[in-house]
Design a protein around this nucleic acid. Structure first.
Length: 467
RNA sequence: GCUCCCUUCGUCUAGUGGUUAGGACGCCGGCCUCUCACGUCGGUAACAGGGGUUCGAGUCCCCUAGGGAGCGCCA
């Protein structure tokens, strides 16, 4: 039987990092088994669902490279089907109308709680003979009274829940709309889902869903409940822990492959391996190896992974991902003649695309001043004279490449009996505006003779007026 | 309160009865060095606690503690 997995987000916001991991696991499972991956939008809560959120989820999936084979299906477009199944259950006597008012239910729950019991519906409307005329009924599923539900969970192992712990849940509201646990069941059934991979906050829903499935006469799918992702404080990952929106990571300069790699390793592992190509993930991923306990999201490790991916990226690929960030900084990367060299020299030292852009700016744009701290530290003493002397040497230099620039600087240092730092640092500030740049010889080589001489002149002037 | 789930370094994890409990991130230190970053070498640090079973337990069983989830006419 072909594997079919699904990802069923509710469009009530951005794509959450935790949902993304669940989606990734489902996607991997389908890909690994040559199966199909279904996207289903659970938008039955019309109050909170909206079109922008649907788009945000689609964007997030696409950015992560999680493609789907079927869908997106929208639950709001399947209302007739849900109604059909509700009627079917009603006709078969497997569901019934309940006329209990909210007040009645509240009181019942209060009593149960007071007794120390778990609050649950006691089934009083199962036998109701004379329905009141003025109360629009809900439809409840007739849950089995005894016996157990057994889940052989692919992650957690065998879970056994007694039916006496369950109650007759509402499958249709008084306005006729179906509820979550019911729509999921009908969808999973109709879409022939074979493996439900979802967060373990759903384990409590699973026995109910299995019971409905059985009442409908279908074989339940296999379940895999993956643990939640927690924040540093051990609480469920949420906004207060930092970025939880997948797209925020794009904005912050992360590579999608790095995020995916981080996510797959959070709660799953293959021996000591840390870095996986997409192909390796598909081949090696094994749902049974997923950790049973929840994992804490660790931004530092993600940052490290991002750096590893930036470092290893082909320069063209890097440019494609960074293009947008350069645009935001006012640079059209495609118009820069030396973009390749600049990216190459900076990709070894940037943990994010944002940092890469920051480190690259002075190559592409004229300086708009000097960093105050750097000036104070290095534009002093003989710096001005040294720059003047250096300028003369550089002007004569030919060919203009890193190797010859290197030699030139060393010769000057030797001749003046000073450390290379005494030359390199003022020079660095002159061309980069700060005391931070790639190796000075490479920096000059990439920048080009003309710009370098021009910037050195400007720096000499600046130092003169300073004195 | 009730039910279910979980528990190896700070964090992610390896480990399926016999290991000096391994790796990764982070952190600390040495080296390298024109800055930043890298690299490199080394270090720090864990089986939640208590009972069993066993010649032997991180690994199996029980209890306790701690954490999480659920108990809606939300999804």
């Amino acid at each position: 039987m072909a594997v079919i997995t699904r990802f069923p987000p509710s469009p009530t916001g951005y794509l959450h990092i935790g949902s993304a991991r669940t989606a990734l696991y489902s996607w991997l499972y389908a890909r690994k088994h040559g199966g199909r991956f279904v996207l289903r939008i659970e938008d039955t809560d019309r109050q909170r669902s909206n079109e922008e959120s649907v788009q945000a989820i689609l964007d997030g999936m696409s950015w992560l490279g999680l493609d789907y084979d079927e869908g997106p299906f929208f639950q709001t477009q399947r209302m007739n089907r849900y109604q059909e199944v509700i009627d079917q259950l009603l006709d078969a006597g497997k569901a019934y109308h309940c006329y209990c008012t909210r007040e009645e239910l509240d009181e019942m729950r209060a009593q149960q709680r007071a007794r120390g019991d778990k609050p649950r519906y006691d089934g009083r409307c199962r036998q109701r003979s004379q329905p009141p005329q003025d109360v629009p009924p809900v439809v409840r599923f007739k849950n089995p009274l005894d016996g157990n539900v057994v889940i052989d969970d692919l992650v957690k192992g065998r879970i056994i829940i007694s039916n006496s712990e369950l109650d007759d849940l509402i499958i249709a509201r008084s306005d006729g709309t179906p509820t979550y646990n019911f729509t999921v069941v009908v969808d999973d059934m109709d879409m022939r889902i074979t493996h439900v991979i979802r967060g373990d906050d759903h384990v409590n829903n699973t026995p109910r869903q299995i019971n409905i499935l059985k009442a409908l006469g279908v074989e339940p799918p296999r379940y895999a409940h993956v643990p939640m992702i927690l924040g540093e404080d051990g609480k469920r990952l949420s906004k207060r822990h930092g970025a939880v929106s997948v797209m925020q990571y794009r904005d912050d300069g992360y590579l999608p492959r790095a995020l995916v790699n981080y996510l797959v390793r959070l709660g799953w592992s293959h021996g000591d391996q840390e870095i996986f190509t997409r192909q390796e993930m598909i081949e090696l991923f094994n749902i049974g190896n997923v950790q049973r306990g929840s994992a804490v999201f660790n931004p530092e490790k993600l940052l490290w992974l991002n750096y590893e991916y930036i470092k290893a990226a082909k320069v063209e690929e890097l440019r494609d991902h960074a293009r947008w960030h350069f645009e935001n900084a006012g640079i059209n990367i495609d118009e820069q003649p030396n973009w390749k060299q600049v990216l190459r020299v900076n990709q070894q030292r940037s943990k994010t695309l944002l940092e890469l852009v920051g480190r690259s700016m002075f190559f592409f744009r004229e300086l708009d001043g000097y960093d105050a701290k750097s000036v104070k530290k290095h534009f002093k003493g003989q710096a001005g004279e040294i720059l003047v002397e250096l300028r003369a040497q550089l002007e004569r230099l030919d060919p203009w490449d890193a190797e010859h620039i290197h030699l030139c600087l060393h010769r000057l240092a030797e001749r003046l009996s000073i450390g290379l730092g005494k030359i390199a640092q003022p020079l660095r500030i002159a061309v980069a505006g700060v005391a931070v740049s790639p190796p000075i010889d490479e920096t000059l080589a990439i920048l080009g003779k003309k710009k370098v001489l021009h910037r050195v002149d400007a720096a000499v002037d600046y130092i003169d007026t300073m004195m």
